[in-house]
Nucleic acid binder design. Structure first.
Lengths: 294, 294
DNA sequence: CCCCCGTTTTTTATACATAAGAAACATATG
DNA sequence: CATATGTTTCTTATGTATAAAAAACGGGGG
């Protein structure tokens, strides 16, 4: 009943590993592969078995040798490497953001399960986890209510975000000169500049950089509640902007420049400057989001 | 397979309703009862049927009359009115706080299900919901890890709490004189004074008052993320102090006085005073918690 | 002894089943 | 026709089943 997505993902990853090796080379041990692939040895063995069956790997006495270069077409398609729970997430986000759902819509577990073609258990589990994003609410013995991806959601989100980011930025600036974070922030700046130089082609890469940047700042003083809140932000930006591509390039360029300003402020160690750069960036991000909701 | 806890709870509540009525009196309509009991009409009818079977209610043509006073012993015991999911919560908290679990302990769904005598589905669902409290963490394709009810948990919790409470207190103080909250804060003060007057006997009532007090302050500027965080705080205090009764009376008395000081500060509208009262209270609450953890 | 691999046991992810509960529909009665 | 009750249908809460994945066990060679 469980899907073999872990196996398929590992299989694909294994293809990549083999491609870095020479034909006829000996493979690493099962245990070594287990660590490289990030799965259990059970799965590694299944992958090895599958590759042997296809002639990619040849098993000799106490050895496994690469028999033939795996071709890209032997990979399992991306969809088959996603656990059902991940597929549900995507389906749900699509359902939500495509506009099938307006604020106040009742969410019916059974109906969603039917619509997505999965078991109710999974939908239920997803909704329980999704609850933390503040977009749905459960009612006792009844279903869920979708509260809507509304302006007030965005405002509440940014109120918290501002508190958290200002806190982290200040703590960041208070770190001693010797701290390794100053190196990291340097390479962060470099990454921003690189992206900026090639913004027309790569503007879509910003989303990931954005997340990394804010997480780096927050990481100086770890707090599990702040980290958990960053998941909310990541989710919002990841999914929301998938459906709102308007002005994406311009939007991201502005954000990059704001990040650079914040980096400079951090390096100056000047609290007033930091506060201002931080607030400026968040205000503009908030306005952009609000604008795209309306 | 589903338990009939909703029915049993409604049945007990119905006993209370009937006791306020006279013998021979006519009962409200099913619909009216549905609203009073907060359940569906289906459940109301089941309750009515049960009571008819016991002679508490006599059904005549188009009428239902109270035939006999229900006795307290006819109530269903409390345990039977708790949904399995609620029982799991209690069991888990007990498991956690009784000390069976030290930081880093791996949580095994199957084992917990066995230990608690429930289905794995329910345990899984509970863990998914419980995740938001920051005490457990999931690992892909494996179980969960209990991160421990540790000092750093308490510190991280209070760092956020301080941000949120200060924010709410300030917004509270900024409300115009005409706002109804000033009346509410007055009666809150009265409730605190009452409790203080009878502290030796009623010190255990503080926990609920505490939660109400902080929620009142936060409610002036609703933010779903802050509200959700208050659930965390409520959980911590509710369960943790169930297993740490040491100095409870003294602890609560101190907290009441701190609340009274904060109320006074709020009424003064003086930001500096408010900040100080707020911080004082939170610091003392944090120290108390830290002390009881160590 | 330590690592490698084959085998067995345990656990998780997911599907499915069903009683309890909610909601919708239908009928009756004033 | 509005409201109350009887009936039917749909949904949720919870248990059980099972393939996939992880973990544990065990023997053999360096």
């Amino acid at each position: 009943m469980r899907t073999d997505t872990t196996f398929k993902r590992a299989f694909n990853d294994m293809i990549d590993i083999i491609r870095t090796l020479d034909l006829g080379a000996e493979l690493p041990s099962e245990n070594a592969l287990r660590i490289q692939l990030g799965v259990s040895r059970t799965t590694v063995r299944k992958v090895l078995a599958g590759m042997s069956a296809r002639g990619i790997i040849i098993s000799e006495a106490h050895k496994r040798i690469i028999g033939e270069r795996p071709r890209q077409k032997e990979r399992y398609p991306k969809e088959e490497t996603l656990a059902i729970s991940e597929q549900v997430e995507t389906s749900f986000m699509e359902w939500m953001l495509r506009g099938d759902a307006c604020p106040g819509t009742e969410i019916n577990e059974t109906e969603l399960a039917r619509k997505f073609g999965v078991a109710t258990t999974i939908v239920r589990e997803f909704l329980n986890r999704f609850q933390k994003y503040g977009l749905i609410e459960k009612r006792q013995n009844a279903g869920w209510v979708f509260k809507g991806f509304t302006a007030s959601f965005a405002l509440e989100l940014f109120e918290i975000r501002e508190m958290f980011e200002m806190r982290s930025a200040r703590l960041f600036a208070a770190l001693p000169d010797g701290s390794p974070v100053w190196k990291q922030i340097q390479s962060m700046r470099a990454a921003h500049l690189e992206l900026l130089a090639d913004i027309d082609a790569r503007f879509q890469d910003f989303s990931e950089l954005d997340s990394r940047f804010h997480r780096l700042i927050a990481a100086v003083a770890p707090n599990r509640f702040i980290e958990s809140f960053q998941d909310v932000i990541t989710m919002v930006f990841h999914y929301h902007y998938q459906w709102n591509k308007r002005d994406e390039r311009a939007r991201n360029e502005v954000a990059i420049r704001e990040h650079l300003a914040l980096i400079e402020a951090l390096e100056s160690r000047n609290i007033a400057l930091i506060d201002r750069a931080c607030r400026l960036h968040l205000t503009s991000a908030r306005e952009t989001l609000l604008h795209s909701i309306a």
